[in-house]
Write a protein that binds this DNA or RNA. Sequence first.
DNA 1: GCGGTTAGGTCTCTAAATGAGACCTGTATT
DNA 2: AATACAGGTCTCATTTAGAGACCTAACCGC
Lengths: 129, 129
Amino acid sequence: MPEVSARKLQDWTEQGFEPGNCPVRQVLDHVSAKWPVLILLELGLKPMRFNELLRALPDISKRMLTQSLRNLERDGILRREVFDTKPPSVTYSLTDLGEGFLPHLLALVDWAEKGMPEIVAARQRFDRT
Amino acid sequence: MPEVSARKLQDWTEQGFEPGNCPVRQVLDHVSAKWPVLILLELGLKPMRFNELLRALPDISKRMLTQSLRNLERDGILRREVFDTKPPSVTYSLTDLGEGFLPHLLALVDWAEKGMPEIVAARQRFDRT
DNA sequence: GCGGTTAGGTCTCTAAATGAGACCTGTATT
DNA sequence: AATACAGGTCTCATTTAGAGACCTAACCGC
């Protein structure tokens, strides 16, 4: 497995990607940062409206919600639809691209859950010394 | 798949996890943030020393490297070993826990790479309007 | 028809996180 | 004696994130 990643890193650097402009980095940043992760998990459950997301994620600010949603929309990971009701309503849902990402995200959550006992133990060991 | 995640979110909230103290969130934050991701990819290739990592990640600062390494060490995802050479050398390597995480991370990178054309297209559409 | 509420944001201001880079300790090198 | 390297820490400037006021338009109760 490491060789795969080794080759990729090689390829990338050979293709002259300055670290800062690596597109994969950018996507991962958008997708794996704190709020985007939680937003995607929510939208994986069902499409949601702006304020619904706000209520589902009690500790996000409107500002960060807007910003994260825009990034994900721009990357084609979710879709924003405005309905001309009164007041107008806006729903967000995963695109196929976003759906394709979800299993990986859930795998991560699963890994974290399963690993929690070990992680907690490691922390205690670390903090004791 | 969504039901799985639905149940988890349910469970968590039922267990009275305030969003802020959710341990899984914390681990994901440590593991999926910008620098930790890159560090783990590097250490997935081979164990490395501090300055070696610094050179491999040309745009990280010492400060953030130290900090990220400490977090990952505390969570038991990597191991720090000091050798009493002169000058003393310090190597970082993945623990079993960390090795277990690597495939998921590589899957994400892979998803991002495969999805790049679609993502780039989505961005252009978004920016045009 | 006045006050309050909802949706979906934006704007401003403050607080916290990050980045750049000087500095430190100890040994070896020239 | 001066310089270099490893592996950091410390300080300070810049970025980013968070809290919350504000906005528009429409509806509800009374």
